[in-house]
């Protein structure tokens, strides 16, 4: 190709979403291992795109930021009709799901699959989200129900706040409830 055919310079548009005021609020309300991840993956992706991101942990989602529980989230196939025998499309009969050891086995398998993708465990993932500028908030009502104070939560949780506080501080944000 001759020099005369060279196109003008093309520079990717890395304009920050902050300039457009884009914000994302994620409410994490589940404490199952499998349901902890969607919020974390989306938060991490949003932060990587320069979107200000706030996560509110409520109800069972509180386990994700509880020092005592965050390392022991579990996955149960019970009630999950999308659960198949590994590597196949065959359903596992729901009647088998409550069998002793099933949750432990399923949790171990899921953790391995996640680790194989080089996706961090939940506490480590939250470390990364905070390092990327994400904000973590805990729900007042859930704290009261669990008799939790800030001392029981990850040190980087910015506060225990009411639902109205969270709604107020996320004005204009896009919102995900998980």
């Amino acid at each position: 190709m001759s020099i005369t055919e060279v196109a003008p310079s093309i520079v990717p548009n890395f304009a920050s979403n902050e300039d457009s005021g884009r914000k994302l609020a994620i409410i994490c309300s589940k404490g199952n291992l499998d349901m902890a991840y969607p919020g974390l993956i989306l938060a991490n992706a949003a932060l990587g795109e320069g979107v200000e991101t706030m996560i509110f942990f409520t109800f069972w989602g509180f386990d994700m930021i509880s020092k005592a529980r965050m390392n022991d989230l579990q996955f149960s196939p019970a009630g999950n009709t999308a659960m198949h025998l590994p590597g196949t499309n065959a359903h596992i009969p729901q009647a088998m799901m409550p069998a002793p050891g099933m949750t432990a086995m399923a949790t171990k398998m899921l953790k391995k699959q996640i680790a194989d993708l080089d996706v961090p465990e939940v506490p480590d993932f939250l470390d990364q989200i905070v390092a990327a500028g994400g904000h973590l908030w805990a729900c007042r009502m859930s704290a009261d129900m669990n008799k939790y104070t800030m001392a029981d939560l990850r040190d980087d949780v910015e506060g225990i706040i009411s639902a109205s506080d969270f709604i107020e501080m996320t004005e204009g944000a896009q919102l995900l409830f998980i």
């Binding site: 890395f14 920050s16 979403n17 902050e18 990587g48 795109e49 320069g50 080089d118 996706v119 961090p120 990364q128 390092a131 990327a132 500028g133």
Partner: peptide, 24 residues
């Protein structure tokens, strides 16, 4: 970004400082 931290040894926080907003 994750791999740059775990394998490359540069923490995510530092990546954001060096390449603001959209490090990856």
């Amino acid at each position: 970004s994750r791999r740059v931290q775990t394998v490359g040894g540069v923490p995510v926080k530092e990546q954001f400082a060096l390449f603001p907003k959209k490090p990856a």
